[in-house]
């Protein structure tokens, strides 16, 4: 199968076949990352620009490593170092970038839809590294990869996502990604953090964390941000962790082979206890490893180097 998408914008716009192709390619890339010399010349001469309007260390570094392992030239621009702060519009900034002929623009932006807007205007491929509360497709793909690797398949898995669903682009992308690949998704969290009509994404909702955990193959915990107290979304971290936090005690209801995931960075003692985060079920660090592989795969597929990968 040939990958024909110019851009990776969200999980809605990827088909199940395309997702499988990305995951297969990512497995191959993971093997590259385990070699003593972790570099292939596949994207030599290609230019990748990392365009981060929001602070992010992990995702930016993950993309940067991915691009470099493929021998692409990678440039990073973040808010504060570019003209972002000088009041230039997103479209103008992007057009200026495009005038330098990059092959791929990777964008993280606080406004939902910003990558869509760029993709419409630019000839370069656009990869969404997180836009507002909308989508984080590379995170969803690495989560899918991690589950497939551990469980053998995604279809039929029961995935519980716990936390602030409303403000989470990871949750949105995973609702769409996991259901598209045949898993069932149950969301849990305080009613203040469950968005209106979220069932239309094909998921179910409970406000009882034990109910969500019971029988789950995968338990995904989302970061709770203290500033959400201002919007009256929860009372205190203390109460949140008591009612919704994932602890060993709660995990007694879970399946023995349940996997614990977290998109990071984690708040130890709030949404997840240290003993769970560091415990035997946790595959949080594998997610990070697979993040590099998935991002290499995406760069390869959109920058058109797919045909050469097996040559070396």
């Amino acid at each position: 199968m040939q990958f024909t998408k110019k851009d990776i914008l969200d999980m809605d716009s990827l088909t199940a076949d395309e997702i499988n192709l990305i995951l297969d390619t990512a497995e191959h890339m993971k093997e590259v990352s385990q070699r003593p010399i972790k570099k292939v010349p596949t994207l030599r001469g290609k230019t990748v620009v990392l365009f981060f309007y929001e602070p992010s260390t992990r995702t930016r570094v993950s993309f940067d490593i991915a691009a470099k392992r493929l021998s692409a030239d990678c440039h990073s621009i973040s808010a504060g170092t570019s003209s972002i702060v000088k009041g230039e519009t997103l479209v103008d900034t992007a057009k200026n970038l495009e005038a330098m002929n990059p092959d791929v623009i990777i964008i993280r932006h606080p406004s939902a839809g910003a990558p869509h807007m760029l993709a419409k205007k630019l000839k370069a491929s656009v990869i969404n590294a997180g836009d507002g509360m909308h989508a984080h497709p590379t995170q969803s793909l690495l989560d899918l990869m991690t589950v497939r690797e551990r469980k053998g398949r995604i279809k039929g898995q029961r995935v519980a996502i716990i936390g602030d669903i409303s403000h989470s682009r990871v949750a949105r992308s995973n609702c769409i990604g996991f259901t598209k690949m045949g898993a069932s998704v149950v969301l849990a969290g305080p009613p203040t953090m469950i968005p209106m009509a979220v069932e239309t994404l094909g998921v179910s909702v409970t406000h009882n964390i034990d109910e969500a955990i019971y029988g789950a193959d995968v338990i995904m915990v989302l970061r709770i941000q203290k500033e959400r107290q201002k919007g009256f979304l929860f009372s205190t971290e203390r109460e949140y962790s008591r009612v919704y936090g994932l602890t060993n005690e709660r995990l007694k209801n879970a399946r023995e082979d349940a996997l614990i995931m977290h998109p990071g960075p984690i708040n130890r003692g709030v949404e997840i206890s240290s003993e769970v985060a560091d415990g035997p079920y946790s595959i949080i660090l594998e997610q990070v490893t697979n993040g590099v592989a998935v991002r290499m795969a995406l760069l390869l597929l959109v920058a058109g180097g797919a045909r050469n990968v097996d040559a070396d």
């Binding site: 809605d12 939902a112 839809g113 836009d131 507002g132 509360m133 909308h134 989508a135 682009r169 949105r172 968005p195 209106m196 009509a197 979220v198 239309t200 994404l201 919007g231």
Partner: peptide, 21 residues
Amino acid sequence: AANGVMNEGEVATRLGLAGIP
């Protein structure tokens, strides 16, 4: 209305935009 930018409901949820009920 808080920081809402479109009608609260299915479309806002899918697009990740803050809703106005």
